[in-house]
Amino acid sequence: MTSWLLLGATEGGLFDLDATLPLMAVQVVLLTLILNALFFRPVGRTVEEREGYINTSRADAKQKLAQVQRLQADLKEQLKDARKAAQMLIVEAEQESDALYREALAEATASANAAREASRRELDSQRDGALGQIQADSKALGDLIVDRLLAAQ
């Protein structure tokens, strides 16, 4: 047990450097080559391909989003215009119907007035006619009465 850490012991020892060293180095170099071919290169390619794919997809999505936003703004503008046009149409139609209503009302009032006027005039003329008739009749009757009275005397 006491010779554990003895340096330079004839056989063995902790610091026993021998052909293990170069062979281990060769082994590690070979391992590096094999791992490069089996692990680092393929996995790196996969990861980088995925990174590329994600980047292009993201750029694509961004472009699409911008397009969508542009279209949305466009549509909003169109909608606003359409609303304004509809509002104007409504106002116009209201004004038009109002004008039509007034016109019709005025026409009807005028024709009613004319009809009233006409009937009053007719009434007046008939009354005048009737009055004339009555006067004529009463004059004739008076004359008759006078004649008869005179004749009886």
């Binding site: 610091f15 026993d16 293990t20 060293l21």
Partner: peptide, 8 residues
């Protein structure tokens, strides 16, 4: 083992 570490 010191051989391995020295090799590395």
């Amino acid at each position: 083992d010191i051989n391995t570490t020295v090799a590395l």
